[in-house]
């Protein structure tokens, strides 16, 4: 079946199999593999995207449900003149190791800071509790989000 959606400001059309997730469509149909395929059951947050401005797991959205909607992926987060402050802060703080969780965390952290520019520690930890990281133990991820919050 054919779907039409806006991703990172651009109109896209794609022919998808009806059972495909938005995640699969982004990664395999639209050339946007930044959203990651770690668990495909909403337990890890690696595929976090904004669907009509709301943070969701792309693996739990049927591609057909995104028809006519707007999606922002990690690829569309940065302004034209360089990385998004959250992206820069992740590198600066040493929050990136294997990096497989990073795109999802970057999207979730950017979403948090857009709503809550100066989060408390509890707000920060709860907001990122759906994003698993296996490498860092999270400490440097918290540092990165605080750094990005301070830069705003």
């Amino acid at each position: 079946m054919r779907i039409e959606l806006t991703v990172n400001g651009e109109r896209h059309e794609a022919d998808v199999w009806a059972g495909e997730s938005l995640l699969f469509a982004l990664r395999e149909r639209l050339g946007l593999p930044g959203s990651k395929n770690a668990c495909e059951q909403g337990e890890c947050g690696s595929c976090s995207v904004l669907l009509d401005g709301t943070l969701v797991c792309a693996c739990l959205v049927l591609a057909a449900q995104a028809d006519g909607h707007e999606v922002v992926t990690v690829e569309g987060l940065a302004p034209e003149d360089g990385p998004h402050p959250v992206q820069e802060a992740f590198v600066q703080a040493g929050a990136v190791q294997c990096g497989f969780c990073t795109p999802g965390l970057v999207v979730a952290a950017a979403d948090l800071l857009a709503r809550t520019p100066d989060p408390t520690d509890d707000e920060l930890r709860e907001a990122l509790s759906g994003n698993l990281c296996r490498c860092t133990g999270y400490a440097k991820i918290f540092d990165a989000v605080r750094l990005a919050a301070g830069a705003s």
Binding site: G19, Q41, L60, L62, A64, Q65
Partner: peptide, 20 residues
């Protein structure tokens, strides 16, 4: 989709029709 999509992604079910 938080329940249904897990069934689809993990190949546990293949409904003939999904009503969105």
């Amino acid at each position: 989709g938080t329940d249904v999509m897990v069934e689809l992604n993990f190949d546990r079910a293949r409904p003939r029709v999904v009503l969105n």
